[in-house]
């Protein structure tokens, strides 16, 4: 049975880790400023964070919280974890930033901005940070779709060596942040069922008003 072991939800005004609101204390600001405030509140030491685009920053922070909550070993090469992410606006937020550097009157295309003009760079950032060498994929969909997310994760588990999948929705556009990252394990005894209903509950309850732990989860 596939189980959700841990999850993190980040929106413009909520931060939820395994059902607990504000796990790093209250954070101020909006957009990039808020993401940086979360980074600082987590007391991370990863200077590359500041070079990332907003999409990567949001996905990176949520994955950090999920993996830390599971005491994930970031030092050992891991071929048994896959990454499956999706969103609707691709890398448009950063694409527009790059476009601004192509101004005819002030033409200085930025290489550092250009390298983030693909949405799947966020999976690369997470994989590099955590030495994850399993399959990675990034899908672009019209809107959040729990059914498809469930199918994508099932497909990832079709690969025999994959035992867990870090997956979710990482959307960031024009200061609007909408992220859900989950760790799903195959044949797990703990956690709560990875099914369409539960994925939707996690996504549509960014403030943690419903205590999932009282159902089947066991953190």
């Amino acid at each position: 049975m596939m189980k959700i072991l841990a999850y993190c939800r980040i929106t413009n005004d909520s931060l939820l880790l395994n059902g607990t609101p504000d796990p790093v204390g209250p954070v101020q600001g909006a957009g990039t400023e808020r993401l940086t405030a979360i980074y600082r509140a987590m007391e991370l030491k990863y200077p590359k964070f500041h070079k990332m685009d907003n999409l990567s920053k949001a996905g990176f922070l949520a994955s950090e919280m999920v993996l830390k909550s599971l005491s994930y070993d970031t030092e050992t090469l891991d071929e048994s974890t896959a990454l499956v992410f999706a969103n609707s606006s691709s890398s448009l937020d950063n694409d527009m930033r790059f476009q601004a550097t192509l101004d005819k009157e002030n033409y200085f295309p930025s290489p550092a901005v250009f390298v983030y003009t693909l949405p799947n760079i966020v999976t690369g950032e997470i994989a590099i940070r955590n030495k994850i060498h399993g399959e990675t994929s990034f899908f672009i969909m019209k809107s959040f779709n729990a059914e498809k997310m469930h199918i994508f994760v099932e497909c990832a588990f079709a690969c025999k060596k994959i035992t867990q999948v870090l997956c979710g929705w990482t959307e960031y556009l024009n200061g609007h942040c909408d992220v859900l990252v989950m760790m799903v394990r195959k044949d797990a005894a703990k956690g709560f069922d990875f099914n369409i209903s539960n994925i939707n509950k996690l996504y549509f309850d960014p403030y943690g008003t419903h205590d999932f732990r009282s159902e089947k989860a066991d953190y």
């Binding site: 200085f108 295309p109 930025s110 290489p111 550092a112 390298v115």
Partner: peptide, 13 residues
């Protein structure tokens, strides 16, 4: 290497 490219842009800009 990406930083190197940014430094080249900085010199020009």
């Amino acid at each position: 290497s990406i930083d190197a490219l940014e430094l080249i842009v900085l010199m020009e800009k």
